[in-house]
Design a protein around this nucleic acid. Sequence first.
DNA 1: TTGCAATATGATAATGATTATCATTCCAAT
DNA 2: ATTGGAATGATAATCATTATCATATTGCAA
Lengths: 143, 143
Amino acid sequence: MILKKDAENSFEAVSKGQPKPRLTAGQQSLLDTLQHQPQPLSAQALYGVMRRQQPIGLATIYRALETLKLLGLVQHRVTLTGETLYSAVEHDHHYLTCLQCGVSVPLETCPVQELAAQLQGTSSFRIYYHTLEFFGVCEGCEG
Amino acid sequence: MILKKDAENSFEAVSKGQPKPRLTAGQQSLLDTLQHQPQPLSAQALYGVMRRQQPIGLATIYRALETLKLLGLVQHRVTLTGETLYSAVEHDHHYLTCLQCGVSVPLETCPVQELAAQLQGTSSFRIYYHTLEFFGVCEGCEG
DNA sequence: TTGCAATATGATAATGATTATCATTCCAAT
DNA sequence: ATTGGAATGATAATCATTATCATATTGCAA
Ligand SMILES: [Mn+2]
Ligand SMILES: [Mn+2]
Ligand SMILES: [Zn+2]
Ligand SMILES: [Zn+2]
């Protein structure tokens, strides 16, 4: 996927002709940070990253992430340890995870893109993102 | 998917030629219960269900679910509210969930079956199950 | 069978990520 | 400038899950 670098507000790219929400400085800053991350991050990790550029309270980060999710700008996934990781919706990656040691290997392709577009028309939902993950046991953990 | 009704120990059906683990009475009972559920259940919900048939401590249920997961007999998914739901691996269903009200609509098809089999050969992992979920906003929550 | 070591179980305390509170600050529109 | 509503931050509370630890079972050898 091609991203316009440093769009002043990437909302345009996602929502077309919908009620336009104004992001606060903090939300915008958080979104920018997220869009520049190569990996999904937890709320607490984001708290640490923002700390150096634009300090934002942890509670506010959780609230902002929720808001951005509802706007279709941010997506989430939950790790085996129970922490939620966030990333920009443009970040469409999936993993193969070992149930034993927890190691995650990224997949190269996303076989769901088509179905997502198809569902978009079929269902009455407006679809923002999806999660796809495979679980099993890695070679090293083979018992 | 067709299920042999009341297999004495469905492990055979999943693991072929691997070190055969003996499930304890509680684990077996829990697995049976899970295989008869039409919907994924949380550990606590299972605790409530087992209560009437074969009382098992909550901690033991969590441990058993973890064990069954490692054996490739049980799968899990995490809801928006953060609770983990468990189901027998035979239960291959996916959902379209509203980020606002949390309602989940089941999908009819699983477009990942093939890729899973393919990955099985490509990767060095032994793949047990996968999760696939679409997130968006339902018609009623449309803002 | 009997005895023991390894494993499983239950009750309960502890953990930790997330959420609820609430006082304060910001913001937009009179 | 004034004001009502939304946003923020610090912090307490929540609650699903884990860690403990004492007790009960199980598997196996003597
Ligand atoms: Mn994808
Ligand atoms: Mn599937
Ligand atoms: Zn592993
Ligand atoms: Zn909804």
